[in-house]
Simulated assay, not measured.
Amino acid sequence: MGYIQDNLMPNEKVLFTANVHPAVFLPSVFSFVVSIGFVVYALMTGGKGDMTSGLLAGFLLLTAGWFFLFSIFLGVQALIILLTTEFAVTNKRVIANLQSSHSKERFQTVEMKRRLRHLRRYRTLYACPMVMAHRKAAS
């Protein structure tokens, strides 16, 4: 089971669960596309045969390599965030298990002062722009 199921209080029911949106991979994809662009431009520039275009092509390939490594780093970081983050709204509180790749801190719960009755009218609850919420099927 996950963090949320393991930390429910007695008589607490999960109303909504949410996952991180796959858009966290966009910076990685953008960096990869930029690296491909550098490689293509280097291949077009390097075929001219003079020394200046050869040096420029070498520099562009080196830059493409750095962008490619950076895209791998961003992709692994996004995968860690996607796999280790959990959100839930229960009938008593909001629970979030956020694992940051930069620190070991955990944001566990947010106590709600208002009743959650008015939230039940909506089909989707958006906790933040990078989160997709899903209504849990009635058990």
Rank of each mutant, 00 (worst) to 15 (best):
V39N: 05
L43E: 07
V40F: 09
V40L: 09
T52C: 01
V40A: 05
L62F: 15
W66N: 12
L56Y: 02
G37D: 05
S53L: 00
G46H: 07
S53G: 02
S53D: 11
A64L: 06
F68V: 06
L69N: 11
L61S: 04
G46S: 06
G46Q: 08
D50C: 04
Y41V: 10
F67W: 11
L60T: 03
Y41A: 12
D50N: 15
Y41H: 09
L62Q: 03
D50T: 05
L43D: 08
G49K: 06
T63C: 12
G47F: 00
G54R: 13
V39W: 03
W66I: 15
G47P: 00
V39Q: 11
A42L: 05
A57Y: 03
T52Y: 15
T63V: 12
L56K: 12
T52H: 14
G49W: 11
T63E: 06
V39A: 12
T52G: 13
A42P: 01
D50A: 07
M44H: 09
A42T: 05
A57P: 03
L69Y: 13
F67S: 04
A57S: 13
G49Y: 10
F68H: 11
M51I: 07
L60C: 06
L55F: 10
S53K: 09
K48H: 13
D50P: 00
G65W: 12
L69A: 15
L62H: 05
W66H: 12
G54W: 03
K48G: 07
T52I: 08
F38H: 02
L60D: 01
